[in-house]
Design a protein around this nucleic acid. Structure first.
Lengths: 247, 247
DNA sequence: CGTGCCAGGTGCCCT
DNA sequence: AGGGCACTTGGCACG
């Protein structure tokens, strides 16, 4: 596509605050929280209706470059083609694309006010434990969930049948060293605040890393196997495997 | 765009392993590591050349849905339109788009083998400290950097002029409680391994949170102000502020 | 606004 | 494959 034509289309779409996407060949420089540069190649560039920018390479999961909404965009003619210049004054970030060719361009005003519903998070997990405390053990009595304290927030907090306070840290996946440390911090802080020297710490997760378990035991804590809330398992036996992508 | 026409184009582009993007109106269901659903709205759908899928709403930073490469994609005719069905057999994840309209379609085979160069990361920071240890203090002698141990990896490791071992944990931004606990874990582990009871712990960061500093002192560690490696500051006085996006 | 922390986190590296 | 951790992390909730 002719770069002049692209410039017109881009400008027009921008004025109408449309969602813009185009394929191009470009060099990239980013400067802001870090410095990054990427030499010439083909990429997808997208500019959302709020000004959010993404640059994607043809493969891989993450955008190679991006800018959050709230900046300014300019197209400037250069000898090699077009300079796409994005600048965010508040974060002091730059993103510059030296565009030598534009292959395709597409824009449209999109209407979408929907928000995603999500289930199966860690919050759901702590909720489940609060509702069904025997998942931990038969003596556990929950008091609160996701309680915010100055030193972090505790997933589930309660006590056992002897009145000993219990702190539970939930992890949706394998609990690692960080989870143990988090638990340790809460337990220590509660001991300190309450002036007591016995507080139980439990990690509730489907799995725990060997190192983490070792550290857990060393600190007198324990682990209980809890799986995150049941999910719709649609990959049942009758599920025929689709063929590999485009094979 | 007619859905039949879209189906043909999509199929054709898929066979050629092109990068595909299209605007559409759709409902979305995800099932896998969690359960998510999103009711009808306009979105950008992109399918990369390796099969990576992204769905973007017209605003906001992150894709509302995505699938990693390695899955299978099918288009299935339904009464309401088209069912875009992506399934990853290994991760057992589903992504289904009930597409009622397609507005625009674009596809192209992109060529890009470039990798991004990035500067100003935490690794650069620890490198800088190793090269220039006086950033910590005049007595610090670095021994190793990013040393991997069984219990994590230590950003910078060394000793002072009295032979006391020193562990440094770097953070590019404000150090929080997690950073202090990371440091604490390394220090404790080294004490244990070496059978010594004096090891220094230092956090090197541009800033430290009050809570974190309190905890740091409590454990006898210290903080040194270190900024991440100098970046090109292009937002100098002469920089004219560009106007706000499309204003 | 800073602090803390989860995320369908993702990606990288090392064991 | 699994663990440990940074990330231009992003996003939310709360003080």
């Amino acid at each position: 596509m002719d770069l002049g034509e692209f410039e017109d289309k881009f400008d027009e779409a921008g004025k109408k605050k449309e969602f813009i996407v185009f394929f191009c060949k470009c060099k990239i420089v980013y400067s802001g929280r870090a410095e990054a540069s990427l030499s010439k190649g083909d990429r997808l560039v997208s500019v959302k209706q709020d000004g959010t920018i993404f640059v994607h390479q043809p493969e891989g999961g993450n955008p190679i470059n991006y800018m959050k909404a709230g900046g300014a965009i300019e197209l400037i003619k250069q000898e090699y083609g077009l300079l796409f210049k994005a600048y965010n004054a508040t974060t002091k970030e730059y993103l510059e694309l030296e565009i030598s060719r534009v292959y395709n361009f597409m824009s449209k005003k999109l209407e979408d006010g929907q928000k995603q519903l999500l289930a199966g998070t860690e919050a759901d997990m702590s909720d489940m434990i609060k509702q069904n405390p025997t998942l931990i053990n038969k003596n556990f009595k929950p008091l609160s969930r996701e309680e915010h304290t100055k030193f972090g927030f505790i997933d589930v907090f309660g006590h056992d049948n002897k009145g000993t306070l219990v702190v539970i840290e939930c992890k949706r996946y394998t609990a690692g060293l960080d989870a143990v440390q988090q638990l340790r911090r809460y337990v220590e802080k509660i001991k300190e605040l309450k002036g007591i020297n016995k507080v139980s710490g439990i990690i509730a997760s489907p799995k725990i890393a060997p190192n983490a378990e070792e550290m857990l035991k060393k600190w007198g804590f324990s682990w209980t196997l809890v799986n995150p809330p049941m999910r719709l398992l649609r990959h049942n036996k009758n599920q025929k495997d689709l063929q590999s992508f485009w094979s």
